[in-house]
């Protein structure tokens, strides 16, 4: 692991961290001891599984990152057909989840593909299902999705796996809301490190 500092993940540093207000909000919500189901679209990370298991959550890992951005493969597989194939293969059988973790995936998808993912996610949502998205507000971001690891109930550690940068789409709330039809922005937190955390809630519409 490289040096760490509480700075931007887009600066090419290998490891960094930030205080996550959205995570803190989620943890308060999940701390009532009820058994819940979490759909994690990111890679399998032991710390994350352990953290959510400690909150009595059953975690399903879809690891779309691995499929959409295979090592040594094209940087972004955003073709609609490829995306549909991947979603068919990687998403679990339809069942409702209380929390969906998308991490920074949407930074790497065009709005039409975010909409395609959101359309699929409706099958895994029920009214009130929370969706966490981390959107870059910087001009550039790593050319591959970042591995976000829960450090504690208020902090995320992230490993930037590639030193290469690419332009960031810098999605704003209206664009995201349009793409994520059926999900409404419940809370958003603009952080100084160039990440805006969004918590969406599924409205069922």
């Amino acid at each position: 692991m490289g040096p760490s500092s509480p700075s931007s993940p887009a600066t090419g540093e290998e490891t960094s961290h930030h205080q996550s207000l959205a995570l803190g909000l989620l943890v308060r919500r999940l701390s009532d001891g009820r058994r819940r189901r979490v759909l994690d679209l990111g890679p399998a990370i032991g710390a994350n599984v352990a953290f959510f298991a400690s909150l009595s959550c059953r975690v399903h890992i879809a690891d779309l990152h691995q499929s959409l951005f295979p090592p040594g493969g094209p940087r972004v597989r955003s073709e609609a057909r490829a995306l549909e194939d991947i979603l068919d293969r990687d998403l679990p059988p339809a069942e409702p989840f209380e929390l969906i973790l998308t991490w920074d995936l949407f930074n790497y998808l065009e709005p039409k593909n975010i909409a395609a993912v959101a359309q699929r996610l409706k099958a895994f949502s029920q009214v009130g299902t929370s969706l966490l998205a981390l959107i870059s507000t910087r001009k550039e971001l790593p050319d591959r999705p970042t591995r976000f690891e829960v450090h504690d109930s208020q902090h995320l550690i992230y490993d930037v796996e590639s030193p290469l940068l690419r332009p960031a789409p810098r999605y704003k709330e209206p664009e995201l809301s349009r793409a994520l039809a059926g999900f409404e922005v419940e809370s958003s937190f603009l952080l100084r490190n160039g990440i805006q955390e969004y918590l969406f809630s599924y409205s069922g519409c």
Binding site: H18, Q19, S20, H155, L190, L191
Partner: peptide
């Protein structure tokens, strides 16, 4: 991880 326990970026 170094610095992990310290305060992160302030919102």
């Amino acid at each position: 991880k170094p610095g992990a326990a310290a305060a992160g970026s302030k919102p």
